[in-house]
Design a protein around this nucleic acid. Structure first.
Lengths: 312, 312
DNA sequence: GACTAGGCGACAAGCAATGTCGCGTCAACT
DNA sequence: AGTTGACGCGACATTGCTTGTCGCCTAGTC
């Protein structure tokens, strides 16, 4: 296979999507870094021009080192191509994520979902009806997602990833006053469509929990994030900051009515779950579970459908 | 840009992933169909060999028209390449889906998740620690997913997509006896990690609900699926086949303790939700909701934390 | 106005890609 | 067992593409 073809494919990967861009000299140095020896700048220029004739790639020629980029709405095509099974799975995932992730977050994945649509609709007319064939039913009571600002999200995510600080304008729900913080994000926790930011504020060592959709404005700062030695998101969550208590392991013994408990026969509470079907059809379950608020809510949700024998 | 390079890229897209495969003659005809005139079979053979030297592509040489395929665990690389934001979103999605979709289903997406891992770990050492920075907390009590056979899943999905029949061997949970059905899948519903197949059996017009993980064996038949005129998955679900009753709209009025209800201030029950904070801190919510079993379970799960005033 | 960086056209040398042909192999059919 | 056909692959000459070099042009900068 010719060096040329390989190089051009590699170049396609180095070209970013529209807001960002790459210049020919940058590209040349990336290529040499990637092991393509002795590529003249001239060759890179020629290649970029050639690629733009066959792919949705354009150059910004307003200033001199031209900036090359994939057009914003260029469809993502993957290698290997999406097979129908994977496309179906993607749509399933989309169906589900729509219920659970904020829209602004999910937008990043839309080129993939679009690609899945294409695959499925190309597979012949019959298959075009797939949306009528697949459904995801939500777990629990559906709630409306809070509105998240796209720019705010981008800044916060970037700050988290690049260990930088951000200045955010924050407003608590029932308050009119806005506050401005300089945050150093430590972690991101998503639960029930709400995105939480674990962070420190200013030079303080104390960790705070901000809610993404309460941030009105955010601006990335060119300052490295404050470092908290030994911080671990896992431990932080274990501490019960999200209302989940320490998570002691307990032995649950309970008797469910047949209707309420039969799903546990197939989706067990734990690996060591014991089940016994009583003569009257009721189901006795014994399992080792973690004692959390969720567990209590889950048990309560069955109302009369469950009788808890013991929980030690 | 040379015809050669373009053709080879196109070939990469035509090559399927491991279980499936494509032969050189097939490839040749696909290429001519795609507008590449006059490609000798010999050239295609040469190209395939060349590609396999630079990509995780292999050929099955056990029988004569060799079958070419991308290796099962080949990482998917997309064009344009995954940017860090998208990669992070993908990992977030994976985190979520792990809790909700059966593992066998999610396996189809694993190349994408792997690609996201690569992007994130290449972004410099600091970013390699991202898994410690992002967490998704499950909604409700976590249950163990049932085990689904990969082959069974593939066959059933394919039957659904191609409107064909499949022969399945089915075993109900507490029974030893296996039954064999010839099913025509009508739709797929996923709820709480359980995949349900809505289908007809044999020539009957009655719809049945099978559970994917109870299928022991499945074989695709070369018979078109039985057609049910006017079937709609949407309507089927509305009929309450999943224990969700008809879904009458009702007006809910309830008073929550502050702790139990404050999340409703930001993630509302409905668009027309009214909230009032009572002098003692409790929260009165009025909203139009659909009366479902989920709603009742949700209300019960708060125990003493909520007092339902009316539900009409 | 000189200087610099980058883009681009032109051109000859070299290298790669292609079609053709022939041989070998394997499997299926007669 | 022989025949036939499909396929993969090595070899080779020819065609045509790719590449580095050089020089010119433009736009911004000191």
């Amino acid at each position: 296979m010719s060096e040329t073809a390989l190089r051009q494919m590699r170049m396609l990967q180095f070209i970013p999507r529209e807001p960002r861009k790459i210049s020919a000299p940058e590209m040349a140095s990336k290529l040499t870094a990637a092991g393509f020896d002795e590529v003249t700048l001239r060759t890179v220029q020629r290649d970029l021009n050639a690629l733009s004739k066959h792919f949705p790639i354009r150059s910004d020629e307003r200033e001199k080192p031209f900036g090359w980029f994939w057009m914003k709405d260029a469809p993502a095509f993957g290698l290997p191509a999406l097979d129908p099974q994977t496309a179906l799975t993607l749509k399933l995932a989309q169906n589900y994520l729509n219920l659970e992730l904020p829209t602004a977050t999910l937008d990043y994945l839309s080129p993939y979902f679009k690609a899945a649509d294409n695959v499925l609709s190309e597979m012949g007319g019959r298959l075009a009806k797939w949306p009528d064939k697949v459904r995801v039913l939500p777990k629990g009571q559906p709630l409306l997602p809070p509105r998240i600002d796209g720019d705010v999200q981008r800044v916060v995510y970037q700050a988290l990833m690049e260990n930088r600080r951000a200045e955010v304008v924050y407003r608590k729900p029932a308050e009119v006053m806005e506050q401005t913080f300089e945050i150093s994000p430590l972690g991101l926790v998503v639960r029930n469509q709400v995105v939480y930011i674990v962070c420190t504020i200013g030079e303080s060592k104390k960790t705070y929990l901000l809610v993404l959709h309460r941030i009105q404005k955010a601006q990335l700062l060119d300052k490295p994030a404050a470092v908290i030695k030994g911080f671990s998101l896992e431990k932080y969550i274990q501490q019960g900051e999200f209302g989940l208590p320490t998570g002691r392991k307990v032995r649950l013994e309970a008797v469910f009515t047949h209707l309420a408990g039969r799903h546990l026969l197939e989706t067990a509470l734990s690996g060591d779950q014991d089940t016994e079907i009583l003569p009257d059809g009721r189901i006795r379950i014994t399992a080792t579970v973690v004692e959390t608020e969720e567990l209590k809510m889950w048990l309560r949700s069955f109302g009369d459908g469950v009788e808890v024998i013991s929980l030690i």
